[in-house]
Design a protein around this nucleic acid. Structure first.
Length: 963
RNA sequence: GCGGGAGUGGUGUAACGGCAGCCACGCCAGACUUAGGAUCUGGUGCCUUCGGGCGUGCGGGUUCGAAUCCCGCCUCCCGCACCA
């Protein structure tokens, strides 16, 4: 371990410290011994109600269950810093507290290990990803053990274990084997669909039957194609996010707003490719609506709501020559104000709509300088396709576009609307076409200004309105035809009326659109779960029978991905598994005799393994089932009818707000629909822990200097005697401000490190790291130790025959109440403050060596046990108890000692505190007032003044309002 | 631009609408010490003529009473961003 200026040198002073002091060296010794003992005795084994892990359940059968967990770590090889354990310690303290307080607590931990970063790390180090990943897992496991966390180690696994990914593949087959029945609002087995199609009670969903022939007239292959297009996991040829720098395609959630890969920051291009998709959009409504049934933070729910992006509106059809252009709008009430239309440059109707020649007198601004509409459109499309995502999304850019040379007809008033293409309309949203209402839409107004298009106002702006698009509320104007008038109506009524009219006349209908897209599920990488899919001679997908799972990831000579120049948009993905020629074809007997099949060579994204791992903790060794339904019901089932169920407390970083948390909810809902789980949601309560950052320092050249060697002097920061600039940022090697748990544990012990991390604020709050402040937590633990153990003799100071005084009893019970409050609200800092107060009180009341009442010492040890479990267990056994305190009942405050006999009450005059009076705790308002008036100081203020009013709040204060 | 959250000592933080700053770091002083980066004790918001005055980003409001509730503004953080 490196020595740095901030760390105390333990060895230097051991010569003259008392022989039985709680020193870092003693802490180490105690901690290692207890960690061994907990493991040997299975202290933290949690019994299941049934099955393989049910031994000892009768001991906890009458306890309520409590399932809490962390977002499991991803062993990247970069190493843990002091910020990483924050959440793990938060759940650990909670877990230990709830176990002591009478819950059957499940607190497991596993490892997310497939995926890009692990593969990249392996490529860098020239080793097989399994080798590096397993080494990294072992390292993290050892670090967690050294922190003293209470995970049930029998339930641990990694997503790369064949026994685990067998069931990841099984879940994929569940998704492949089902479809979303819109009328039922849920997923159903695909066999039901086939049966209903056969029976003629259902027709294929729109867009799934390219031939258009009736089901009965389709041949087998055509039927399979139709059915495949209904599945929740389906193959689709569509523009996807192709990232040449990573050599793989990515999901929308993995691409940043400026069109780059979240991982590695490489450019991403839209490119049509045939890929596996997950039909998450079918669940958009339930994913939004059920957010309100869960205990998640408002901000997180909002992020999911925004990502799903539901908007209610209407589809409206406009006739354009022989064609019909369908638009989506959230403001059908402004239909009378539409003065032109815009299609996305990639809209499929552009080619058919485009005119051969410009009509006479065409505004030169509309032509893009081209001789014909076709030339103008071709040029504009080319320009739009070359434009990067970043450019295209720059809202500040001047609007561009060209006219197609044709018009469409507004169904409400017959007005001829010129039809443009412009890149401010996006292909992927709504119908890829809009009606433009410059009077009430800012973007349309900007376009209208550039192209000289008319503006018709349909909402009355206020008198002082400055001009431009008016997006506020107001009565409708200019909105009437022979049959309908919206004039005078407010927005909501107007939308209802016009929608009704559109439906009556066949011009449109109410509809809902979403920003959420289906989840792109294939990756062209080696280090992931293989798909349990093979292809037959028709190139159609066939599921591998569950009896043949898992489909093992084959060993290959070259597992590195085929990557390309970052900006090589025309490159094509090449899955590493396609090079495993032995593996790619396989002879199987799938019912009609042994045949050759071609394997799917894509792998799953690393989100797959993390989508359902919480279920596997219930029994990771179950080889018969993904999860035993009885265990799922016990640990995750609804607590009462209408409850969503799920993990009782899930702690993790906010960076997974729309990735892991959305995908996992989707899978869980599918599993629920198919009857595999009783709960409707995976995570009932979710808390985002804060981040720990640290100061970093730059010298006069702007280079970072080692933060640990910077000293502060008179408000200045010095490195090697020279002033440096202080910055604040992420902990890491690049800022030279790395501090690791191992260093802190080496210098102070795990308990001190735990107490320090928990003392710096509520769990969900971000905070700075400050090594020099850790000593405060060490001093606290030393004082607690000293209250129990005589530092000179090593004798236990607790004595049965010493009765605590009243003040000590009050201090104890106030502390119990405060610590409970802190633990149950994840504000561990409050619990630690109360424990500190009690410890300081005992230190003062009983000195360094006189006996301390056992009736106070024991509760103190139990109170601190969730925070500093090694120290507590050591003291607990020294106090004469057998074994760990982990299962001992947590102290309960006695109300008797929480209420005071007499209370100090503030006396205010005109709202300012002028004095204090001591009154009986149950004194009523009149008695309070009398006591206050009797106070000399107050009498002085009241003398000669008119008391206009007296406010007396029993137990709180008296306020005299003078006239 | 839209949406959300937050602004309290030198620092991390704490305060059912009721005595602002619990607890800790740091700092100051003292005790024990050859010594102190150990331990223990006391002090520590700002100003002060030592009476007191002023203090929770700024300005208003509600209230007997506001860090807390309401309105406006400023600053910072987060999310989304031409989403029709």
């Amino acid at each position: 371990m490196s020595q740095t200026a901030d760390q105390p040198d333990v060895e230097q002073h051991t010569g003259d410290v008392p022989p039985h002091r709680y020193t870092p060296a003693l802490a180490q010794q105690i901690e290692l011994a207890w960690q061994d003992r907990w493991e040997a005795e299975g202290t933290f084994h949690t019994p299941n109600p049934t099955g393989r892990l049910s031994e000892g359940f009768e001991r906890v059968a009458d306890r309520p269950k409590y399932f809490l967990m962390d977002m499991f770590p991803y062993p990247s090889g970069a190493g843990l810093h002091v910020g990483h354990p924050l959440g793990y310690l938060g759940t650990d303290v909670t877990s230990r507290f709830r176990r002591m307080d009478g819950d059957n607590v499940l607190h497991p931990m596993g490892y997310d290990a497939f995926g890009l970063p692990a593969e990249q790390y392996a490529v860098q180090t020239g080793q097989h990803p399994r080798v590096t990943t397993e080494a990294n897992i072992a390292a993290i496991k050892a670090q967690l053990r050294r922190l003293g966390v209470d995970h049930d180690d029998r339930r641990s696994f990694a997503t790369i274990d064949p026994g685990y990914y067998k069931w990841t593949q099984w879940i994929f087959l569940q998704l492949f084997g089902s479809w979303f029945d819109e009328s039922a609002g849920k997923a159903r087995p695909i066999e039901d669909l086939v049966a209903e199609l056969d029976a003629g009670t259902r027709t294929p969903t729109a867009g799934t039957n390219p031939s258009g022939l009736p089901w009965a007239e389709l041949d087998d292959v055509a039927r399979r194609t139709v059915v495949d297009a209904h599945r929740l996991a389906y193959l689709n040829e569509a523009p996807v996010n192709w990232c040449p720098g990573l050599g793989t395609v990515l999901s929308n959630e993995e691409v940043t707003a400026d069109g780059r890969s979240e991982r590695g920051n490489f450019p991403v291009f839209r490119r049509p490719l045939k890929q596996w998709m997950m039909r998450i959009t079918a669940y958009a409504d339930r994913l939004i609506d059920d957010l309100d049934r869960m205990d998640w933070s408002d901000s997180l729910r909002l992020m999911q709501r925004n990502w799903i992006g539901r908007s209610n509106g209407a589809k409206v059809r406009f006739a354009a020559g022989a064609e019909t252009v369908e638009v989506f709008t959230t403001r059908p009430d402004t239909l009378f104000g539409a003065t032109y239309m815009v299609l996305a440059p990639e809209h499929p109707l552009v080619a058919t709509l485009t005119a051969d020649a410009w009509p006479d007198g065409t505004d030169p601004r509309w032509t893009g300088g081209a001789a014909t509409p076709r030339e103008a459109v071709a040029a504009y499309q080319r320009q739009a396709s070359r434009r990067s995502e970043l450019d295209r999304q720059d809202a500040g850019r001047e609007k561009t576009g060209v006219w197609l040379g044709v018009t469409a007809v507004n169904p409400v008033n017959g007005r001829e609307l010129p039809v443009f293409i412009a890149d401010y309309v996006l292909t992927g949203y709504g119908t890829g076409a809009i009606m433009a209402v410059p009077g009430e839409d800012t973007r349309d107004f900007e376009f209208a200004e550039v192209f000289g298009l008319p503006v018709v106002r349909t909402v009355q702006p206020p008198e002082d309105f400055a001009g431009g698009a008016y997006t506020g509320s107001g009565p409708m104007i200019n909105s009437a035809n022979d049959e309908i008038s919206l004039d005078g109506l407010e927005k909501a009524d107007a939308i209802a009326r016009i929608t009704e009219w559109l439906v009556q006349h066949g011009h449109g209908e109410a509809t809902t659109t979403y920003k959420l897209r289906d989840w792109l599920f294939s990756r062209q990488r080696y280090w992931g779960e293989p798909f349990p899919i093979v292809y037959d001679e028709n190139d159609l997908p066939i599921p591998v029978p569950t009896s043949m799972l898992p489909v093992l990831l084959p060993e290959v000579d070259d597992y590195s991905p085929k990557t390309f120049a970052d900006d090589d948009a025309d490159s094509a993905p090449e899955p590493p598994l396609s090079r495993a020629t032995e593996w790619t074809t396989v002879e199987l007997d799938l019912g009609d005799g042994p045949k050759k099949y071609r394997r799917e060579t894509n792998t799953m994204p690393n989100w797959a393994g993390s989508c359902w791992y919480y279920l596997r903790y219930l029994d990771p060794a179950d080889d018969e089932r993904m999860v035993d339904p009885e265990l799922e019901k016990y640990w995750l089932g609804p607590r009462e009818p209408g409850d969503v169920g799920g993990v009782d407390l899930y702690v993790g970083g906010v960076e997974h707000a729309v990735l892991h948390l959305l995908y996992a909810r989707f899978w869980h809902k599918v599993l629920h629909d198919l009857g595999h789980v009783s709960s409707e949601e995976p995570f009932r309560r979710l808390v985002n822990q804060g981040y720990i950052s640290a100061f970093a320092y730059t010298d006069e050249r702007g280079f970072y200097v080692p933060a640990a060697e910077v000293v502060e002097k008179d408000g200045q920061f010095l490195y090697e005697g020279k002033p440096v600039n202080r910055e604040y940022g992420k902990i890491g090697k690049s800022l030279k401000n790395m501090v690791t748990p191992d260093e802190m544990i080496g210098a102070y012990g795990a308990d001190t490190f735990r107490v320090y991390e928990m003392s710096t604020g509520p769990l969900d709050q971000s905070r700075p790291w400050e090594t020099k402040a850790v000593v405060g937590s060490q001093r606290l633990l030393q004082r607690i130790w000293r209250v129990v153990v005589d530092e000179q003799t090593g004798q236990v100071r607790a004595a049965e025959d010493v009765e605590p005084g009243e003040e000590t009893l009050r201090a104890l019970h106030r502390t119990i109440a405060g610590v409970r409050d802190g633990f149950s609200t994840l504000r561990f800092n409050i619990a630690i403050a109360r424990i500190t107060e009690l410890t300081n009180h005992l230190t003062q009341a009983y000195g360094a060596s006189s006996p301390v009442p056992r009736s106070v010492v024991e509760p103190l040890v139990l109170l601190v046990a969730p925070l500093a479990p090694h120290l507590a267990d050591e003291l607990w056994t020294r106090l004469g108890h057998e074994g760990s305190s982990a299962w001992h009942a947590f102290p309960v405050a006695d109300e008797r000692w929480l209420v005071e006999d007499t209370v100090q009450v503030a006396v205010q005059v005109n709202g300012k505190v002028r004095s204090q009076v001591s009154v009986p705790a149950d004194a009523d308002a009149a008695a309070l007032e009398a006591a206050a008036r009797a106070d000399d100081k107050i009498a002085g203020y009241l003398d000669g003044a008119t008391v206009r009013r007296v406010v007396a709040v029993p137990g709180r204060l008296v306020n005299f309002v003078l006239g």
